[in-house]
Design a protein around this nucleic acid. Structure first.
Lengths: 143, 143
DNA sequence: CATAAGCTTAGACTTTATCTAAGCTTTGAT
DNA sequence: ATCAAAGCTTAGATAAAGTCTAAGCTTATG
C-alpha cells in the first residue's frame, strides 16, 4: 500500500534544490497520518496546531507542489478540492447521504473493459467515482 | 438522444407552480443550443446578449434549479463548475492538452463489470472520466 | 559562519457563487 | 381585461476558496 512518504518528499526536495522547512514537514506528516481526504482548510488547521503563524499561502504552495510532483492527488467533491495521500491506483465511492468519500481498491472493480472511442484519442488514464449509500447510511435508511 | 427540452421545463414549471419568465427561457434556449459544457459565466454572457440587465443571481438560481430537477447535470473541471445539458447517460473525456471535455457515449465503453465493494454499500450510479489527448492534440503532438 | 537562494508571513486581491431587500412580472381568479 | 398574491429579478453586499506580493527570515552549502 503506497502512500505519501516523508522519504519521497525529502528525496525530491534534495533532487530539486528545495528547502526542507518545518512547515513542509508538518504538512507532510499530517497528510501521512490522516485518514480520508482533507481539504486545504483541514490541512491548514492541523498545521496551525504546531505553527500558529502558518500562512494559508504556505499550505497551498506545498499542496500544489506535492500534487505537481504526483506525491498527492486532488479530487473534487461538491466543488471543493480535497487531497488524497493514497498513491495506489484506486477509485472513489461518494455517499450521497453523509458525503463521505471512501477509497475503493482498484481490484474491487473488475479489469477495465475495451473502450472504442471515436477518432484517434489517446487514453492515458481514467477516474471512476461510484455513487450511492455507504454501509452506515444504508443501515440507517433501512431502519 | 435526450437533451434538456423546453417542453420538460414548462411542464415542470406548471407542475410546481413556478413562473415562466423570459430570462429562464433564454437560459434554457442557450443550454439547448450550446455544444459542449458551458460555465455559469458562459450562460450569463449568452443571456446578457438578450437581457443586458440579467443578474448573475438569476442565472445561478435557474441553473441550480434545473440541476436539482435533473434536467441538467454539473461536472467539475479544474475546480470550475460546468453544466451539461446532455441527459443521455454518458461518460466524459478530458484532454490534458487543450482541456476540452467531450461526451463519450455510454455504449462506447463495454458493459460495466462486477464491483465487489466491502460491507453493504448501495451503488446507485457512477461517473467515469477518461483522460488523455483528444484527436486534435494527439495529431499536433505527433507532428 | 557568511552567502545566496528559497521560503514564510500577513494581508490584499481575484474568482466563483450565494444572499438580501426592494420593486417588478407572471399566473390564476374574477 | 383586471387584480391580487406569489414568485421572480435586480444590484449590490457578502462569503468562500485560492492566489499573489513585498518584506524579512530560514535553510543549505562552501
Amino acid at each position: 500500500m503506497k502512500r505519501l512518504a516523508t522519504q519521497d518528499v525529502t528525496d525530491l526536495i534534495r533532487a530539486r534544490g528545495l528547502k526542507l522547512t518545518p512547515q513542509r514537514l508538518a504538512i507532510v506528516e499530517y497528510l501521512q497520518a490522516c485518514s480520508g481526504h482533507p481539504t486545504a482548510e483541514d490541512v491548514w488547521k492541523a498545521v496551525n496546531a504546531k505553527f500558529p503563524m502558518a500562512s494559508r499561502a504556505t499550505v497551498y504552495n506545498t499542496l500544489n507542489w506535492l500534487r505537481e510532483s504526483e506525491l498527492l492527488s486532488e479530487i473534487q467533491q461538491d466543488g471543493v478540492a480535497r487531497f488524497d495521500p493514497n498513491l495506489d491506483p484506486h477509485h472513489h465511492f461518494v455517499c450521497r447521504a453523509c458525503g463521505r468519500v471512501e477509497d475503493v481498491d482498484y481490484d474491487a472493480v473488475a479489469p477495465w473493459p475495451q473502450c472504442t472511442l471515436p477518432d484517434r484519442h489517446v487514453i492515458e488514464g481514467f477516474d471512476l467515482t461510484l455513487r450511492g449509500l455507504c454501509a452506515n447510511c444504508a443501515a440507517v435508511a433501512a431502519s
